[in-house]
Design a protein around this nucleic acid. Structure first.
Lengths: 117, 117
DNA sequence: GATTCATATTCCCTCAAGGGAATATGAATC
DNA sequence: GATTCATATTCCCTTGAGGGAATATGAATC
Protein backbone atom coordinates (compact mmCIF):
# COMPACT_ATOMS: atom_id res chain seq x y z
CA UNK A 1 0.00 0.00 0.00
CA UNK A 2 1.52 3.27 -1.07
CA UNK A 3 -0.02 5.08 1.87
CA UNK A 4 1.96 2.97 4.28
CA UNK A 5 5.22 3.85 2.54
CA UNK A 6 4.29 7.49 2.91
CA UNK A 7 3.53 7.19 6.60
CA UNK A 8 6.71 5.20 7.17
CA UNK A 9 8.60 8.06 5.61
CA UNK A 10 6.86 10.57 7.84
CA UNK A 11 7.39 8.90 11.18
CA UNK A 12 10.84 10.33 11.87
CA UNK A 13 11.40 13.92 12.95
CA UNK A 14 14.45 14.61 10.81
CA UNK A 15 12.59 13.51 7.72
CA UNK A 16 9.65 15.72 8.60
CA UNK A 17 12.01 18.64 8.86
CA UNK A 18 13.61 17.81 5.53
CA UNK A 19 10.25 17.66 3.80
CA UNK A 20 9.11 20.84 5.45
CA UNK A 21 12.17 22.70 4.26
CA UNK A 22 11.88 21.20 0.80
CA UNK A 23 8.39 22.59 0.48
CA UNK A 24 10.03 25.99 0.11
CA UNK A 25 12.10 24.82 -2.85
CA UNK A 26 14.96 22.56 -4.00
CA UNK A 27 18.09 22.43 -1.90
CA UNK A 28 21.48 20.77 -1.74
CA UNK A 29 22.66 18.59 1.10
CA UNK A 30 25.04 21.07 2.66
CA UNK A 31 22.25 23.60 2.92
CA UNK A 32 20.17 21.01 4.70
CA UNK A 33 23.04 20.56 7.10
CA UNK A 34 23.16 24.29 7.71
CA UNK A 35 19.43 24.57 8.24
CA UNK A 36 18.82 21.50 10.37
CA UNK A 37 22.21 21.55 12.14
CA UNK A 38 22.44 17.79 11.99
CA UNK A 39 25.43 15.66 11.00
CA UNK A 40 26.04 14.88 7.33
CA UNK A 41 25.48 11.13 7.66
CA UNK A 42 22.12 11.68 9.22
CA UNK A 43 20.93 14.12 6.58
CA UNK A 44 22.22 12.03 3.74
CA UNK A 45 20.76 8.79 5.03
CA UNK A 46 17.34 10.25 5.58
CA UNK A 47 17.34 11.89 2.17
CA UNK A 48 18.29 8.53 0.73
CA UNK A 49 15.44 6.92 2.60
CA UNK A 50 12.97 9.48 1.28
CA UNK A 51 14.31 9.07 -2.21
CA UNK A 52 14.05 5.27 -2.12
CA UNK A 53 10.38 5.67 -1.24
CA UNK A 54 9.65 8.29 -3.85
CA UNK A 55 9.04 11.20 -1.52
CA UNK A 56 11.85 13.25 -3.00
CA UNK A 57 13.77 13.36 -6.22
CA UNK A 58 17.36 14.39 -6.74
CA UNK A 59 19.80 15.36 -9.39
CA UNK A 60 23.52 15.88 -9.36
CA UNK A 61 24.82 19.31 -10.19
CA UNK A 62 28.60 19.28 -10.19
CA UNK A 63 29.68 18.35 -6.72
CA UNK A 64 26.24 18.95 -5.30
CA UNK A 65 23.13 16.87 -5.09
CA UNK A 66 19.97 18.90 -5.42
CA UNK A 67 16.91 17.45 -3.75
CA UNK A 68 13.37 18.47 -4.54
CA UNK A 69 9.82 17.33 -3.96
CA UNK A 70 8.52 15.09 -6.74
CA UNK A 71 7.42 16.88 -9.90
CA UNK A 72 4.31 14.70 -10.12
CA UNK A 73 3.35 13.61 -6.63
CA UNK A 74 0.53 11.12 -6.17
CA UNK A 75 -2.72 12.34 -4.74
CA UNK A 76 -1.90 10.63 -1.46
CA UNK A 77 1.48 12.28 -1.26
CA UNK A 78 0.10 15.68 -2.11
CA UNK A 79 -2.59 15.42 0.54
CA UNK A 80 -0.19 14.29 3.19
CA UNK A 81 2.44 16.89 2.45
CA UNK A 82 -0.22 19.56 2.63
CA UNK A 83 -1.44 18.12 5.91
CA UNK A 84 2.10 18.08 7.23
CA UNK A 85 2.75 21.71 6.33
CA UNK A 86 -0.45 22.64 8.04
CA UNK A 87 0.33 20.67 11.18
CA UNK A 88 3.82 22.02 11.77
CA UNK A 89 3.06 25.63 11.00
CA UNK A 90 3.31 26.67 14.62
CA UNK A 91 5.92 24.23 15.79
CA UNK A 92 9.06 25.99 17.06
CA UNK A 93 11.52 23.50 15.56
CA UNK A 94 10.05 23.86 12.12
CA UNK A 95 9.78 27.61 12.41
CA UNK A 96 13.41 27.79 13.35
CA UNK A 97 14.32 25.75 10.29
CA UNK A 98 12.35 28.12 8.14
CA UNK A 99 14.07 31.08 9.71
CA UNK A 100 17.52 29.65 9.02
CA UNK A 101 16.45 28.88 5.49
CA UNK A 102 15.31 32.46 5.08
CA UNK A 103 18.78 33.67 6.00
CA UNK A 104 20.16 31.61 3.14
CA UNK A 105 17.61 33.03 0.74
CA UNK A 106 19.75 35.86 -0.65
CA UNK A 107 22.56 33.45 -1.43
CA UNK A 108 20.15 30.95 -2.95
CA UNK A 109 18.76 33.67 -5.16
CA UNK A 110 22.26 34.32 -6.50
CA UNK A 111 23.60 30.80 -6.88
CA UNK A 112 20.58 28.51 -7.16
CA UNK A 113 20.05 25.59 -4.83
CA UNK A 114 23.68 24.41 -4.96
CA UNK A 115 25.90 25.49 -2.17
CA UNK A 116 28.89 27.60 -3.04
CA UNK A 117 29.27 28.73 -6.64
CA UNK B 1 6.82 15.41 18.78
CA UNK B 2 3.18 14.36 18.76
CA UNK B 3 3.08 14.29 14.99
CA UNK B 4 5.67 11.55 14.92
CA UNK B 5 3.59 9.40 17.26
CA UNK B 6 0.68 9.87 14.91
CA UNK B 7 2.64 8.88 11.85
CA UNK B 8 4.12 5.90 13.65
CA UNK B 9 0.61 4.79 14.38
CA UNK B 10 -0.38 5.19 10.76
CA UNK B 11 2.42 3.28 9.12
CA UNK B 12 0.89 -0.16 9.41
CA UNK B 13 -1.95 -1.37 7.18
CA UNK B 14 -3.98 -3.13 9.87
CA UNK B 15 -4.01 0.00 11.97
CA UNK B 16 -5.11 2.10 9.02
CA UNK B 17 -7.98 -0.28 8.49
CA UNK B 18 -8.94 -0.14 12.15
CA UNK B 19 -8.98 3.65 12.13
CA UNK B 20 -10.91 3.75 8.91
CA UNK B 21 -13.58 1.46 10.30
CA UNK B 22 -13.66 3.39 13.56
CA UNK B 23 -14.46 6.56 11.68
CA UNK B 24 -17.92 5.10 11.13
CA UNK B 25 -18.50 4.68 14.86
CA UNK B 26 -17.44 2.79 18.00
CA UNK B 27 -16.95 -0.95 17.77
CA UNK B 28 -15.98 -3.94 19.87
CA UNK B 29 -13.02 -6.17 19.16
CA UNK B 30 -14.96 -9.13 17.83
CA UNK B 31 -16.63 -6.91 15.28
CA UNK B 32 -13.24 -5.74 14.17
CA UNK B 33 -12.29 -9.37 13.74
CA UNK B 34 -15.36 -9.94 11.61
CA UNK B 35 -14.76 -6.90 9.47
CA UNK B 36 -11.02 -7.16 8.95
CA UNK B 37 -10.87 -10.98 9.01
CA UNK B 38 -7.64 -10.90 10.93
CA UNK B 39 -6.67 -13.00 13.96
CA UNK B 40 -7.64 -11.82 17.42
CA UNK B 41 -4.06 -11.28 18.62
CA UNK B 42 -3.33 -9.03 15.73
CA UNK B 43 -6.43 -6.90 16.16
CA UNK B 44 -6.00 -6.64 19.89
CA UNK B 45 -2.33 -5.76 19.73
CA UNK B 46 -2.82 -3.05 17.17
CA UNK B 47 -5.74 -1.59 19.08
CA UNK B 48 -3.51 -1.60 22.14
CA UNK B 49 -0.81 0.17 20.18
CA UNK B 50 -3.23 2.82 18.99
CA UNK B 51 -4.57 3.24 22.46
CA UNK B 52 -1.13 3.64 24.02
CA UNK B 53 -0.48 6.47 21.56
CA UNK B 54 -3.80 8.18 22.11
CA UNK B 55 -5.31 7.51 18.70
CA UNK B 56 -8.22 5.58 20.13
CA UNK B 57 -10.03 5.35 23.43
CA UNK B 58 -11.74 2.34 24.89
CA UNK B 59 -14.16 1.34 27.57
CA UNK B 60 -15.21 -1.98 28.92
CA UNK B 61 -18.84 -2.97 28.58
CA UNK B 62 -19.42 -6.31 30.22
CA UNK B 63 -17.30 -8.80 28.39
CA UNK B 64 -16.65 -6.43 25.51
CA UNK B 65 -14.22 -3.66 24.96
CA UNK B 66 -15.64 -0.82 22.94
CA UNK B 67 -13.13 1.21 20.98
CA UNK B 68 -13.77 4.65 19.61
CA UNK B 69 -11.91 7.60 18.16
CA UNK B 70 -10.90 10.14 20.80
CA UNK B 71 -13.64 12.45 21.96
CA UNK B 72 -11.29 15.43 21.79
CA UNK B 73 -8.67 14.76 19.17
CA UNK B 74 -5.79 17.19 18.73
CA UNK B 75 -5.73 19.36 15.66
CA UNK B 76 -2.94 17.21 14.22
CA UNK B 77 -4.89 14.04 14.76
CA UNK B 78 -8.05 15.47 13.29
CA UNK B 79 -6.23 16.67 10.19
CA UNK B 80 -4.49 13.37 9.67
CA UNK B 81 -7.55 11.25 10.19
CA UNK B 82 -9.41 13.38 7.69
CA UNK B 83 -6.53 13.05 5.26
CA UNK B 84 -6.52 9.29 5.76
CA UNK B 85 -10.23 8.93 5.09
CA UNK B 86 -9.81 10.95 1.97
CA UNK B 87 -6.83 8.92 0.74
CA UNK B 88 -8.38 5.49 1.18
CA UNK B 89 -11.78 6.31 -0.19
CA UNK B 90 -11.22 4.40 -3.38
CA UNK B 91 -8.98 1.66 -2.08
CA UNK B 92 -10.53 -1.80 -2.50
CA UNK B 93 -9.37 -3.16 0.85
CA UNK B 94 -10.91 -0.29 2.74
CA UNK B 95 -14.07 -0.39 0.70
CA UNK B 96 -14.45 -4.06 1.44
CA UNK B 97 -14.09 -3.35 5.15
CA UNK B 98 -16.80 -0.74 4.91
CA UNK B 99 -19.03 -3.15 3.07
CA UNK B 100 -18.62 -5.82 5.74
CA UNK B 101 -19.26 -3.21 8.38
CA UNK B 102 -22.43 -2.20 6.59
CA UNK B 103 -23.68 -5.77 6.82
CA UNK B 104 -23.31 -5.58 10.56
CA UNK B 105 -25.18 -2.30 10.71
CA UNK B 106 -28.65 -3.72 11.44
CA UNK B 107 -27.32 -5.73 14.33
CA UNK B 108 -25.33 -2.76 15.62
CA UNK B 109 -28.47 -0.67 15.51
CA UNK B 110 -30.19 -3.17 17.77
CA UNK B 111 -27.45 -3.99 20.25
CA UNK B 112 -25.05 -1.07 20.20
CA UNK B 113 -21.34 -1.51 19.49
CA UNK B 114 -20.97 -4.61 21.68
CA UNK B 115 -21.10 -7.93 19.96
CA UNK B 116 -23.84 -10.30 20.99
CA UNK B 117 -26.43 -9.05 23.48
C1' DG C 1 -16.44 -21.36 42.76
C1' DA C 2 -15.98 -23.55 38.18
C1' DT C 3 -16.84 -22.58 33.40
C1' DT C 4 -17.31 -19.75 29.47
C1' DC C 5 -16.64 -15.92 26.68
C1' DA C 6 -14.17 -11.66 24.93
C1' DT C 7 -10.03 -9.63 25.15
C1' DA C 8 -5.17 -8.76 26.66
C1' DT C 9 -0.51 -10.16 27.54
C1' DT C 10 3.63 -12.95 27.34
C1' DC C 11 7.18 -15.32 25.05
C1' DC C 12 9.92 -16.23 21.19
C1' DC C 13 11.42 -15.19 16.84
C1' DT C 14 12.93 -12.28 12.84
C1' DC C 15 13.82 -8.08 10.70
C1' DA C 16 14.40 -3.26 9.80
C1' DA C 17 15.36 1.30 11.58
C1' DG C 18 18.39 4.73 13.38
C1' DG C 19 22.83 6.56 15.08
C1' DG C 20 27.78 7.34 14.46
C1' DA C 21 32.64 6.43 12.92
C1' DA C 22 35.04 5.35 9.18
C1' DT C 23 35.44 4.81 4.41
C1' DA C 24 34.08 5.05 -0.50
C1' DT C 25 32.53 7.53 -4.62
C1' DG C 26 32.42 10.96 -8.17
C1' DA C 27 33.15 15.48 -9.89
C1' DA C 28 36.14 19.40 -10.08
C1' DT C 29 40.61 21.50 -9.66
C1' DC C 30 45.47 21.91 -9.53
C1' DG D 1 46.91 11.85 -11.78
C1' DA D 2 46.78 13.59 -6.99
C1' DT D 3 43.99 16.43 -4.05
C1' DT D 4 39.85 18.47 -2.49
C1' DC D 5 35.14 18.92 -1.82
C1' DA D 6 30.21 17.28 -1.38
C1' DT D 7 27.80 13.40 -0.71
C1' DA D 8 26.88 8.34 -0.22
C1' DT D 9 27.73 3.86 1.72
C1' DT D 10 29.41 0.42 4.93
C1' DC D 11 29.95 -1.57 9.35
C1' DC D 12 28.64 -2.17 13.97
C1' DC D 13 25.54 -1.65 17.54
C1' DT D 14 21.10 -1.16 19.99
C1' DT D 15 16.27 -1.00 19.95
C1' DG D 16 11.52 -1.61 18.75
C1' DA D 17 8.08 -3.53 15.61
C1' DG D 18 5.24 -7.26 14.07
C1' DG D 19 3.59 -12.09 13.82
C1' DG D 20 1.82 -16.23 16.07
C1' DA D 21 1.15 -19.80 19.76
C1' DA D 22 0.13 -20.15 24.21
C1' DT D 23 -1.48 -18.28 28.35
C1' DA D 24 -3.56 -14.83 31.46
C1' DT D 25 -7.26 -11.69 32.88
C1' DG D 26 -11.79 -10.13 34.06
C1' DA D 27 -16.69 -10.25 33.68
C1' DA D 28 -20.75 -13.02 33.36
C1' DT D 29 -23.15 -17.30 34.05
C1' DC D 30 -24.28 -21.66 35.91
Amino acid sequence: MELVRIYESLCEPTRLRLLHVLAAGPLCVCHFQAVLREPQVKISKHLGYLRARGLVECEREGNWMIYRLPAKPSRELRSNLACLQDCVRENPVFRRDRARLAKLAPRLARTGPACCP
